[in-house]
Design a protein around this nucleic acid. Structure first.
Lengths: 198, 198
DNA sequence: GTCTATAGCCTGATAGAC
DNA sequence: GTCTATCAGGCTATAGAC
């Protein structure tokens, strides 16, 4: 594809920055720290990005890239509504469970993101799958507010992973409780009950 | 109660620090900024707290104080199980909806808290109500894993508020969708369906 | 494209007067 | 209990050599 597969310093910087920003937040990571981990000086980093904000934005875009597409496929598959719900749930839970950086960056954006960044995030990542989930919810049970239900599903999945650090100190908190298959089975049966039309 | 109701500088510092830490995170707030807002110098602040970490911890304890007790009352009330679930939901949603600082500090602790702080938070705030919810879940439907269900309820409630910043940019996002009564009605009917024994 | 050196500012924290 | 002055070091970002 590209001309000669040169050593991609810019890409290295972004890949190094993603877990750092995810773990420590924007103001918790210095340009020096990122540069040192990449193996270059801070001044060299400024050759690839005009400022820290731009680097952060590039790291975000990289971390969020292609997440939407993977989900949408299963949401618009050939199966019936319940089958698509299960397939979506499995994929969504799998994706969230394996990418802690994505979850952390999302939570940090919800806490600290300005309107411009949040709008970008909404339109380039969440809008399409969110709308597809809403449509699916309406198809399964039109009596339920599909927007509220889509939010509920996201909250359910995310919190089973995001709560892991504190669950260790709560009664009955077992290690299995944030394994993707355990979370899937729980949320699946919860939603099947909740969405079934009497 | 206390001796003479003196001007409580220490309390002022904490009350000033809470919304700042909630909004900007630990490393996003400087001691100088807090001091300036209180109306004293940074050096004066260090007369009341040995270091920034201690101030942060004191602010956390203040922000989380008494939250647990308010919830536990409704969980152990005289009503039947479904009545207690509804009462708990109403109180929990009300409490989370009105205290954005609490939610932000909790999310930030889940992201950045070390083991010691998380353990403190778990034991002094969440353990009791969490256990009470678990017991209630088991009473309502013993076929469901009560620990997973308690986590699910927390995730449901929290995310309906925490997602507000990005919901504005998603289709069908109306302002009413994070009003406490709308959230309550949605989660209540969702849980009634999900927990009912066939 | 990377380096060293550095400007200019902000940081947490302290010393000592009042 | 609060102040001014200050320290030592970290921060983002730039200048200029190679």
């Amino acid at each position: 594809m590209s001309k000669k597969a040169p050593i991609d310093t810019r890409g290295n910087i972004i890949d190094t920055a993603i877990p750092l920003f995810a773990g420590n937040g924007y103001s918790g990571v210095s340009v020096r720290t990122i540069a040192k981990l990449v193996g270059i000086s801070a001044a060299a980093l400024y050759h690839h990005f005009p400022d820290k904000q731009s680097l952060y934005l590039a790291a975000m875009e990289q971390a969020f890239a292609d997440k939407a597409q993977a989900i949408i496929k299963t949401l618009t598959g050939p199966e019936n509504a319940w089958g698509r719900l299960d397939a979506f749930l499995a994929d969504f839970i799998q994706l969230m469970g394996e990418d802690a950086d994505f979850r952390a960056l999302l939570q940090r954006e919800l806490l600290d993101g300005d309107d411009a960044r949040l709008q970008l995030l909404a339109e380039q990542v969440f809008r399409e799958p969110f709308e597809a989930v809403s449509v699916l919810m309406h198809e399964i049970n039109p009596d339920i507010d599909s927007h509220l239900m889509a939010i509920s599903i996201a909250g359910l999945v995310l919190f089973h992973f995001d709560s892991a650090p504190i669950r260790r100190f709560l009664p009955g908190g077992e290690q299995t409780h944030d394994q993707t298959d355990v979370v899937f089975e729980h949320i699946q049966s919860l939603l099947h009950q909740a969405l079934s039309r009497d």
